[in-house]
Amino acid sequence: MSTRPSLGRLFLYLYPFGAGAMAGNVFFASLIWSWIGWPVLTPVQSVLGGAVLGVPATWAFARHIRSLMEKANK
Rank of each mutant, 00 (worst) to 15 (best):
T58P: 00
F17S: 14
W38V: 11
G18E: 00
P43Q: 04
V47T: 13
H64D: 05
V47D: 05
A21R: 09
W35P: 00
A23Y: 03
F61R: 03
M69I: 10
K74V: 12
S46P: 03
Y15W: 13
L48M: 13
A62E: 00
V55E: 02
S2K: 09
G8W: 05
W33S: 15
T42I: 09
P16Q: 04
A57K: 04
F27T: 06
L10T: 01
L14N: 02
L12V: 08
W35C: 09
G20C: 07
V55S: 00
H64F: 15
I65S: 02
G49N: 10
S46A: 15
L12S: 10
L53D: 05
T58F: 01
I32R: 11
V52D: 08
I36Y: 10
G24P: 05
Y15C: 05
Y13A: 11
V47N: 06
P39G: 08
P5M: 01
R9T: 09
L68N: 05
I36T: 14
K74L: 11
A60S: 11
L14S: 04
E70W: 06
A57R: 06
F27D: 06
R9I: 06
I32C: 05
L7F: 05
G18A: 06
W33P: 05
N25V: 15
L14M: 13
K74H: 11
V55P: 01
V47F: 12
P5Y: 02
Q45T: 11
S46Y: 01
W33K: 15
H64Q: 13
S46G: 14
I32T: 11
L14F: 05
N25K: 14
S46M: 06
L41F: 12
L48I: 15
S30C: 08
V26F: 11
M1K: 09
W38G: 08
P39V: 08
F17R: 12
W33F: 15
T3D: 12
W35M: 14
N25T: 15
L12I: 04
G50E: 03
L7K: 01
P43F: 03
F61Y: 11
L48R: 10
G24I: 11
L12R: 09
G49R: 01
M69E: 13
Y13V: 14
L12W: 09
P39I: 07
V52S: 10
S34W: 03
P16R: 06
A21D: 05
L41A: 11
I65D: 02
V52H: 08
P56A: 07
A62K: 00
P56I: 07
L31D: 00
R4E: 12
N25S: 15
R66M: 08
L12K: 07
A62L: 02
G50N: 07
M1R: 13
L68C: 06
I65N: 00
R9C: 07
L48T: 09
F11N: 01
F11W: 01
V26K: 07
A72K: 14
W33C: 12
F11C: 00
